[in-house]
C-alpha cells in the first residue's frame, strides 16, 4: 500500500489531521512528519499571548502517525477497520512552537489480537527529541 493511500484512509480532517507525510513505513514501524500551522485555533488559548503546542496535540500527532497509519498499513488486506486509542504514556521534553515541523518515529512492540502497541518518539527540525513514550490502539469495526 502506498503512503498517499494510507493518508487518504485516515478518518481525520483539518483541523484534526496531524499527518502531512509518511517518509517510511514497513511492518515494523513508520516515520512521518507534520508541520503545526501557526493559525491552528488552539494556539489562541494555549497559552494567552504565548503559543506552544499542547501536549495532548503532540500525543495525538504521535498516535495518528505512529499507531493509526501503521495500523492501516498492517491491516490493508482486511475489512475496513478503525483504530481506537487505548492507552498512552508519554514524556514531554521540549516545547514545540507554531510553524515547527516534527518527525514521528514509531517502532512496533507487538500487533496481536487486534492490539497495536508501539514505542513512539517525536523529533523537532534540529533532530532533538521533544517527546517519547508508548501508545496502544485497538481495531474496532467501522
Amino acid at each position: 500500500m502506498n503512503k498517499e493511500a494510507i493518508i487518504q484512509q485516515l478518518p481525520y480532517a483539518k483541523p484534526f489531521l496531524f499527518v502531512d507525510d509518511i517518509t517510511h513505513i514497513d511492518t515494523n514501524g513508520v516515520t512521518g512528519t507534520f508541520t503545526y500551522d501557526a493559525n491552528l485555533d488552539f494556539y489562541r488559548g494555549h497559552f494567552k499571548d504565548h503559543p506552544i503546542t499542547p501536549g495532548v496535540i503532540l500525543t495525538e500527532t504521535m498516535a495518528q502517525i505512529g499507531v493509526v497509519c501503521l495500523g492501516i498499513y498492517l491491516t490493508e488486506e482486511e475489512q475496513p477497520t478503525q483504530m481506537a486509542l487505548t492507552s498512552s504514556e508519554i514524556e514531554f521534553l521540549q516545547p514545540v512552537y507554531p510553524n515547527e515541523t516534527v518527525t514521528v518515529i514509531s517502532e512496533k512492540i507487538y500487533f496481536r489480537f487486534g492490539k497495536l502497541k508501539c514505542n513512539v518518539r517525536m523529533l523537532n527540525s534540529r533532530n532533538e527529541e521533544v517527546s517519547r513514550g508508548t501508545i496502544a490502539g485497538m481495531l474496532v469495526n467501522r
Partner: peptide, 11 residues
Amino acid sequence: INSANLIDVIL
C-alpha cells in the same frame, strides 16, 4: 481489567 489490557495479560 480493561479489554485492551487483557491482551497484555495474555501476552
